[in-house]
Design a protein around this nucleic acid. Structure first.
Lengths: 186, 186
DNA sequence: ATCGTTTGAGACAGTCATGTATCAAATCGA
DNA sequence: TCGATTTGATACATGACTGTCTCAAACGAT
């Protein structure tokens, strides 16, 4: 069985999605390689988690890019912001499916450059929600930071619902969008 | 320094809220006792986590009791359901402040009776949201199970926002209620 | 002050996870 | 086929954590 670094990283992500505290031995098994081979590709657990953190933040960045949040902020119109918000809900699904474990990962971000990248995405989100408030697209009676926390929380809920099989993947986007934008009250 | 079992458990909870992977040594420090004393009160980490799990589920049950969700389900009127929903948002704050760590705790529920108690509260919540749908108080175009996941997710978001000091405790209830019931869109 | 109880500090043993290293077997490419 | 490379299995060392135990000091009640 031959696996390259990226294949091993992908298998590690899938395993950690199902079992966030898997050991290196368990991760190697899931990747179909021996622990020795896992260590040859990633010198330590820290290096593996660092790589997974980079992949996760890259995916998050891609979601924001694909949704065009920066462009929407620059344009500032309600139409542009609304379209970006809609696209965000669309692209979040892929991210949650693949990197759900990273939503509540508590130890992966020990690297300075990784922490900086995380804060960068936070800043982009906050700027986006602030612009959305300014454009009258989202509520002004709650801070942009809270709105980002609410979205994050719903992504966690989505991850759990998917993990438990309580909702179908194809419903995920609609449920997320509706809950986030219009809430659960009738 | 003298501390009884309950004080130690409370201190453990506070520590785990701040650091979900604290060791027994760290937990003992936070409780102001030696590790030997911690072990005298709780024979093992498993016993301590079991006790904290019971306290957490008891608090969750208390929230549902205080909000009167079972009574509202039995009565079935929109007014009763709406009042219970409102009360739920009110009482959740206390629970999150105290037992926030338990929201994403992944190893505390190894005891059968504890698992049963957890499922019981899930069932009460699901019955409540189903009744709320029937009464036309919450949306019928998403399952009661998803609504429970959405609420859970927002509680996680609330925990993070409080942990980071991004929102004030006194705003927590309003932000939670508004986000959950009416969403973030303007 | 005395005595029984509790506590803290420290030592020890066992387990698990991680990192390191060795060597034979398997794989790959020419 | 052959040589170079990669891999898996295994052993070992280390550190962290947990549980257990001992004993002197501290504490509380009389």
């Amino acid at each position: 069985m031959v696996a390259n670094r990226e294949q091993i990283a992908r298998a590690a992500i899938r395993r950690l999605n199902a079992d966030p505290v898997a050991s290196m031995t368990q991760i190697a098994e899931s990747a179909g390689v021996s622990r020795a081979t896992l260590h040859r590709h990633f010198a330590s657990r820290e290096e593996l988690m660092g790589e997974l953190g980079r992949l996760s933040v890259a995916s998050w960045r891609q979601v924001l890019d694909d949704a065009g949040v920066d462009e929407a902020v620059a344009e500032g119109s309600a139409a542009a912001i609304t379209a970006a918000l809609d696209a965000l809900c669309h692209h979040w699904i892929r991210d949650v499916e693949e990197f759900g474990f990273a939503l509540t990962e508590t130890g992966a971000y020990g690297h300075d450059e990784l922490l900086i990248a995380v804060e960068e995405q936070h800043a982009r989100e906050h700027a986006f929600y602030a612009a959305a408030q300014h454009a009258g697209v989202v509520r002004g009676d709650m801070s942009a930071v809270w709105i980002a926390h609410a979205a994050f929380g719903l992504l966690v809920g989505l991850r759990e619902a998917l993990r438990r099989g309580d909702i179908a993947v194809r419903d995920g986007e609609r449920l997320l969008r509706e809950s986030f934008l219009r809430g659960c009250a009738a």
